[in-house]
């Protein structure tokens, strides 16, 4: 059955200004959140959703302040619970375009349970994870994505917590859409978010975000201009996995694992380079791509985007079927059903 589109279309063209709120943005100057906000404000006009039907939901954290800075309906909730609140918003009114924003701590520590179950259900809403690998709002404690061994306020001798890779978590929970973006590439982030909005089901976009106060340069090893092209690979559906300043490096599968190779060296040609398929049902390659780090470039772009009937669709189908064919048409019918008698 084809997916239905429940969110009404915009009756006019919007611009970024239509979504910019009059509230003062209170993030630290230079915080990566500013760029993510800008990307989101640029995304909304492209979704072609009616403005009144857009609803932002967030948890608690620096990143979760975002609803105040977007001129839509918004719910700044409690720590970790944004996915659960959004689930109710969308179930109560599937005509809403629901956008969840969470920090790494919000989404994967206190809210980890809600995140995996939201992803597993594949309800039709969009999640953005602002991953600065630290607790920003509470001033610098390690989070579930902080690098192993890192010294933070609560790990003065280095963390001994093995970090989560959000992509693995999403795919482990049977996620249907997972992308990774960089706060320093706002145009790419907008493109990714626009694609996320079009996905029927739960989309998760992890944005690597810099907290310049409590975890400055945590992503610098891959995001610095000087190294970015060699340390990251931007994946595009149906295209070979090529990266590097000279566009001469690529990824191939050597039968055991992915490896980075240079085209023209050791007999490697373009034919050896893997083609990216977002829609491969099996998570195997997508997992490997999401995990890449160290010797391999960090994958950016839409890593996984597969079709699977959304919870929203399944729910509305059941409702429709029962409303049309169910036994009771009104509460009076129900009250008088079964064994009743006069006294």
């Amino acid at each position: 059955m084809a997916e239905k589109h429940f969110v009404p279309k915009a009756d006019r063209e919007y611009t970024k200004a239509d979504f910019t709120s009059d509230q003062m943005v209170k993030w630290c100057p230079g915080c990566g959140d500013h760029a993510i906000l800008a990307a989101l404000l640029n995304t909304f006009p492209k979704t072609n959703h009616k403005k009144e039907n857009i609803c932002m939901v967030s948890g608690i954290g620096c990143s979760s302040r975002i609803p105040y800075y977007v001129d839509t309906y918004g719910f700044h909730s409690i720590h970790g619970r944004a996915c659960a609140i959004a689930t109710g918003v969308k179930l109560a009114n599937p005509a809403l375009s629901v956008w969840v924003s969470m920090g790494d701590g919000d989404s994967m520590a206190i809210g980890g349970n809600h995140l995996i179950h939201a992803v597993r259900r594949n309800q039709d809403f969009n999640i953005t994870i602002f991953n600065n690998e630290i607790y920003g709002l509470t001033k610098g404690q390690y989070s579930p994505t902080t690098k192993f061994g890192q010294v933070t306020k609560t790990s003065p001798y280095g963390t001994i917590d093995y970090p989560f890779n959000p992509g693995e978590l999403v795919m482990g929970a049977q996620g249907t859409f997972y992308a990774r973006a960089l706060d320093c590439l706002p145009q790419l982030t907008t493109d990714i978010m626009t694609r996320a909005a079009k996905h029927d089901g739960t989309s998760v976009v992890e944005v690597l975000q810099n907290c310049m106060i409590f975890n400055d340069k945590t992503h610098a090893a891959i995001t610095d201009r000087a190294v970015r092209d060699d340390r990251t690979i931007i994946l595009e559906d149906g295209k070979p996995m090529i990266f590097g300043k000279e566009k001469n490096k690529g990824l191939r599968f050597n039968g055991r694992c992915l490896e980075a190779v240079t085209i023209g060296e050791n007999g490697i040609t373009m034919d050896d380079i893997m083609i990216h398929h977002e829609d491969t049902e099996d998570t195997g390659i997508h997992m490997m791509l999401a995990r890449m780090s160290g010797d391999l470039p960090v994958a950016i772009g839409v890593i996984r985007n597969v079709k699977k009937t959304s919870y929203t669709q399944l729910y509305e189908d059941q409702m429709e079927e029962q409303m049309a064919n169910g036994k009771y048409k009104c509460v009076d019918d129900l009250l008088n059903s079964g064994d009743t008698w006069e006294i």
């Binding site: 609803c55 939901v57 719910f75 909730s77 409690i78 619970r81 996915c83 659960a84 609140i85 959004a86 689930t87 109710g88 918003v89 969308k90 179930l91 109560a92 009114n93 809403l96 349970n113 809600h114 179950h117």
Partner: peptide, 17 residues
């Protein structure tokens, strides 16, 4: 829901909507 917290939070979200 996946737990009672999600139960009440989904209800709060539904109420908002």
């Amino acid at each position: 829901a996946e737990d009672e917290i999600a139960g009440v939070c989904s209800a709060i979200g539904a109420s908002y909507a």
